[in-house]
């Protein structure tokens, strides 16, 4: 029985909701996400013997899916297809000063603010804050140094906070200061 639970084909179906959430957050399109999830499952089943039992299955799946997504983005870039999502993000990053002003005027929902993060900040945020991966595990999934995980994650959270108006309200109030 324990053997069976460590096999890709036995773990895959139950993991679909998580994989799909990660995919939707990554590519911000349900249709693209579902195709991506299916392709990732196909690839996972084809290379199931490369999954090491005892290691994190979710990390393994996220890595497969994210690599497929990187391929899609790369192809879109070289083909110059439609509106390039990551380019849009670059532009958004370049005019962040304006965006902050805009954000202060109209606060976004947290979900929208996450969507608007640059790709490399969003994926780090997803793995650490949403999926509860450690920095080390996140670095392994994304294939980047742990220091890069930390700097991207800090920026992601600062951007998220200002876009969605998140503050540490309970602790920051002047009331507290007054009490002290």
């Amino acid at each position: 029985m324990t053997d069976r639970t460590d096999r890709v084909e036995d773990l895959l179906v139950a993991f679909l909701p998580n994989l799909r959430r990660f995919a939707i957050s990554l590519c911000r399109s349900r249709d693209v996400a579902d195709d991506l999830v299916q392709a990732a499952c196909e690839r996972a089943l084809a290379s199931a013997d490369r999954f090491e039992p005892g290691t994190r299955f979710d990390a393994w799946m996220f890595r497969i899916l994210r690599n497929l997504w990187i391929d899609v983005v790369r192809k879109r870039k070289t083909a110059g297809v439609e509106e390039d999502i990551s380019e849009r993000q670059d532009i958004a990053g370049a005019v962040s000063g304006e965006r902050e002003v805009e954000a202060r005027m109209t606060l976004k929902s947290v979900a929208d603010a996450i969507d608007d993060l640059p790709d490399e900040q969003r994926e780090v945020l997803l793995l650490v804050c949403v999926e509860d991966f450690s920095y080390r595990e996140t670095a392994e999934v994304l294939g980047i140094p742990i220091g890069t995980v930390m700097s991207r994650l800090a920026r992601a959270r600062q951007n998220l906070a200002s876009a969605a108006g998140i503050s540490a309200a309970p602790a920051r109030s002047g009331v507290m200061k007054g009490n002290a």
Binding site: V110, A111, I114, C129, A154, R157, S167, A168, A171
Partner: peptide, 18 residues
């Protein structure tokens, strides 16, 4: 406290948003 709180809050908010 506020600076630490920001990181705690963003994590909790991101998690519940998704």
């Amino acid at each position: 406290v506020a600076r630490v709180g920001l990181f705690i809050e963003t994590r909790a908010e991101a998690k519940s948003a998704l």
